[in-house]
């Protein structure tokens, strides 16, 4: 991978991770803690929304976030796979594999 495409890859990676972590924060710390009393005003079935997010919903969102990340990174990997990966970088990792 050339330096340019390595940079582009890393930038795309950062952007993805940052946006997923924003959702992570909004749901868990936002929905589950900071705005929980406000959201408790909304009910569905036997649940108050805030309570449900804090004890169930947030966990489902965490799962979704990780799987979105896995898929997006697979895509990103294959996009940047066209260029050969620098041989010298790989061989310096040889003993670790």
């Amino acid at each position: 991978m050339s330096d340019d495409s390595a940079n582009a890859y890393w930038k795309a990676n950062i952007k993805l991770v940052f946006s997923l972590l924003c959702i992570w924060f909004l749901i868990s710390f936002g929905g589950g803690i900071l705005f929980v009393d406000f959201l408790d005003g909304i009910r569905f079935g036997g649940f108050k929304l805030g309570f449900w997010i804090s004890q169930q919903g947030s966990i489902f969102v965490f799962i979704a976030l990780i799987f979105i990340y896995i898929r997006a990174m697979d895509k990103l990997d294959s996009q940047y796979k066209q260029q050969p990966i620098g041989g010298d970088i790989e061989s310096s990792q040889g003993d670790a594999k």
């Binding site: 991770v17 997923l20 972590l21 589950g32 804090s54 004890q55 990780i66 990340y69 896995i70």
Partner: peptide, 18 residues
Amino acid sequence: GTFYLMGWTGGYVLLALL
């Protein structure tokens, strides 16, 4: 009790992404 539930699962998002 939420802090156990979210704390002990939400950490996996950090682990997986970072």
